[in-house]
Amino acid sequence: MEAPSTLRPAARLTLTELPLLGEGLILGLSVQSDRVSADLPERLAELGFLPGARVRVLARALFGDPIAVRLGSGTFALRRFEADCITVQVLAPPVCGAT
């Protein structure tokens, strides 16, 4: 399977799409929907969701919403639409699913 771009496919995801227990590096914050308040990226940044920070999805509730995200040594619960605002680069595959 060959990808045309230099980036491997699926290397760039939103935090929502990051597999359970997989690790990611935050690339940027952006607002995806007009139903979301415009200062959401600022709020997320204040909690520490900043470009360059490492994140890991610890748990997903029933139906995948909300999700629990490890950030540094803190854990935060985010709703799906909030996690959608965070773009990540996949750093490591899920710990248990690694080959």
Binding site: S33, R35, V36, S37, L40, R43, L44, L47, P66, A68, G74, T75, F76, A77, L78, R79, F81, E82
Partner: peptide, 12 residues
Amino acid sequence: RTLQPLQMELPS
């Protein structure tokens, strides 16, 4: 209403 963020810390 707009979508409301959760942003809740889960302390150790």
